[in-house]
Design a protein around this nucleic acid. Structure first.
Length: 301
DNA sequence: ATGCATGAGGC
DNA sequence: CCTCATGCATG
């Protein structure tokens, strides 16, 4: 899928509110406007990137258009059905012609600075008062909002590049640095992981994505090549519990999510499953509960 | 997208 | 044995 790139529109919070597909290296401009192009005529937003290729601001020749409908670029392979849903118009204030997106989420050790230092001018009341940002840090000082923000952003930008989770995973393992699988990408996007994991993944994905977007602009999409299935140990075949067993296990779990060795043995015998399998089931059950009740709380795609 | 499995680190 | 971070395998 060469030549396809997109322009990303962001609001003051650096949230992506839309993407504009465009043709990069087409032979000429003689071609009539793409049939399915958006109706954002007259508006020619520009992207301002920082050294890391991050979007730090967008320029619009006129007042920003009303929430632009996102056009889902057809993904090359996976028939992915429900990948993107319309982006809800972010509850933000009127957009000026020049909006400065989130100040490059680079290094930000802890909470945000108290009062924004402005030029030698006396701060206005609104400046002092408007502190609407509730960083909602978690117990470990992780900015959950920022994570959610990036996750949402990541998915949109990934799709804009026409990449699947699998491709990202492969590319990620191909290039240097931490490697992650499709599963990891999926879980990150839907925040089905602990805030800690998310924060660890974020920089990796961020870096990779920026590089991918750069290559894409340069036409070369040679970021993907390779992928050799290496020898993998033989795994135990995945156990498939019967609906009845699941029901029983859940019942036991409700009674006591942390059964003792004895109890596990009994449950295993009762349901006629390998003891170890039952033990792992409880472990996974507990883990799932934790993961789906953190960053995740609120969303339901 | 998720369910079950693996392995490291910690009591 | 548990928790955690991850991934292979599967519906």
């Amino acid at each position: 899928m060469p030549g396809i790139s997109s322009q990303i529109l962001t609001n003051a919070q650096g949230q992506v509110i839309g993407t504009l597909p465009w043709v990069v290296n087409s032979a000429s401009v003689a071609a009539p406007a793409p049939a399915q192009s958006l109706q954002v005529q007259a508006v020619t937003p520009q992207l301002l990137l920082n050294a890391q290729g991050q979007v730090i601001a967008t320029l619009a020749s006129s007042p920003l258009p009303p929430p632009v409908a996102v056009r889902k670029p057809s993904t090359p392979e996976s028939p992915a059905k429900s990948e993107v849903q319309p982006i809800q118009p972010t509850p933000t204030v009127p957009q000026p012609a020049v909006v400065i997106a989130s100040p490059a989420p680079a290094a930000k050790p802890s909470a945000s600075a108290p009062i924004p230092i402005t030029c030698s001018e006396t701060p206005t009341v609104s400046q002092l008062v408007s502190k609407p940002h509730t960083p909602s840090l978690d117990e470990d000082g992780i900015n959950l909002e920022e994570i959610r923000e990036f996750a949402k952003n990541f998915k949109i930008r990934r799709l804009s590049l026409g990449l699947t989770q699998t491709q990202v995973g492969q590319a990620l393992t191909a290039t240097e640095g931490p490697a992650y699988s499709q599963s990891a990408i999926c879980r990150f996007e839907k925040l089905d992981i602990t805030p800690k994991s998310a924060q660890k993944l974020k920089p990796v994905l961020e870096k990779w994505l920026n590089e991918a977007e750069l290559r894409n602009q340069e036409g070369q999409q040679n970021l993907m090549e390779f992928v050799g299935g290496e020898p993998s140990k033989k795994r135990k075949r995945r156990t498939s519990f019967t609906p009845q067993a699941i029901e029983a296990l859940n019942a036991y779990f409700e009674k006591n999510p942390l059964p003792t060795g004895q109890e596990i043995t009994e449950i295993a015998k009762e349901l006629n499953y390998d003891r170890e399998v039952v033990r792992v089931w409880f472990c996974n059950r507990r883990q799932t509960l934790k993961n789906t009740s953190k960053l995740n709380v609120f969303q339901i795609p």
